[in-house]
Design a protein around this nucleic acid. Structure first.
Lengths: 213, 213
DNA sequence: CATTGTGAACTCATTCACAGCG
DNA sequence: CGCTGTGAATGAGTTCACAATG
């Protein structure tokens, strides 16, 4: 990064989108890509692409464009996905299993190294790769043993805050929360929420607007 | 709504958050709530709450605050979640089942009325409520018969665009896409994406920033 | 000479500050 | 008097437009 400058949150989201398109471009045999083409693929403005990349360096060649492979490498470094991250999942219902089995996540270096639940019906259940569903009581020990850095919460809303507190007690300072509730956490802990009801509400609102128009 | 005025997208997201907090406040026995309290619960600025609501009407009482029950009713009307919406899900892997079983969605009026797949192993499989997993070939007919208004895509990335096209052919103009790929759709069709890898990338980036600091 | 990189202009969103009102 | 509702001020993010350059 060039300067101590505030990076818009949306820029990070777009970098992730650029990266995916670059993978596809490479697969299709492209060696170079212009900001115009990359922007078109992501349905945004070409200046936006250049500005986003400009926050972190000068990756292009004037008059030519960006090297498809090189830019992937650069973006991976920026996002720090040029390494693996160990995930621990709590709540092994359908949602927990969906994350656990998500091929794209593990391909991209987000490795689910442990799965937890508090239900006796589930604890001990074997998972692919020789893993077993562990008792939530073992969370703290396992965090240390397996070096879990990101916690995923796929429990019911009522259990989510308690699980988050356990993660934080084990010094896991990044949480992805799928439970439909707000997680209370100090600034030192990052929380990203994925809330299906909120997204559905947005769709319902927009759909209604469109139908009324 | 009062005027033909542009509503920030973020406002709709927040309305959904307000609604959830109002449910909890009602459960806790509160009859009135101030913008300050509601803002505090959502971790935002009180003026933001008032401005958001101000786009749609005057729902408060000066010197007092907002009626907890009444404001819920108003927000439900604004988001048009004061009715049921019928969902059709395509791709009955773990993710599809997770959505199908999601209690909060059906409680809030988002009803999964049909489930589809293209795998012979899954087609015909019985689901709760007397439903069965249907062949994707039946999508168009079922959309009409059951009045499906929102399509949910939980297939692999490679199948997503094809499924979206089928939804659009059946005049389903709102799609919730979980596949890690961009859906190409004309403006008449709303698409909301939930992309786990993008969110993970954001977490990785922020976590790395924090560790470096 | 096509395309990047970037300051300046513009658009959109949030916060302030206070008038308006129960 | 307290809290809402809202125009004005501020701040953030996007797009424009063009100088810089391989």
């Amino acid at each position: 990064m060039r300067k101590t400058q505030k990076i818009p949150k949306a820029t990070i989201t777009r970098l992730s989108m650029y990266y995916r398109q670059l993978e596809l471009l490479e697969f299709d045999g492209y060696r170079m890509v212009s900001s115009e083409k990359l922007a078109w693929l992501c349905q945004i403005n070409p200046a936006q692409v250049r500005k986003d990349l400009g926050y972190f360096g000068e990756f292009g060649v004037r008059g030519v464009g960006y090297d498809v492979i090189d830019l992937q490498t650069q973006i991976k470094k920026i996002l720090s996905v040029n390494r693996d991250w160990n995930l621990g999942i709590v709540g092994m219902g359908n949602m927990g299993c969906a994350i656990l089995m998500h091929r794209n996540l593990s391909l991209r270096g987000f490795k689910c190294v442990a799965a937890f639940d508090n239900s006796l019906d589930r604890i001990g259940m074997p998972l692919s790769g020789g893993m077993k569903i562990q008792d939530i009581k073992e969370l703290k020990t396992t965090i240390r043993n397996l070096n879990i850095e990101i916690g995923v919460i796929t429990t019911p809303a009522s259990a989510a805050q308690g699980v988050a507190d356990l993660f934080m007690a084990g010094h896991v300072n990044a949480i992805l929360n799928f439970a439909p509730t707000r997680i209370d956490a100090p600034d030192c802990c990052l929380v990203e929420n994925i809330d299906f009801t909120v997204i559905m509400d947005i769709l319902a609102y927009k759909l209604h607007q469109k139908m009324a128009a």
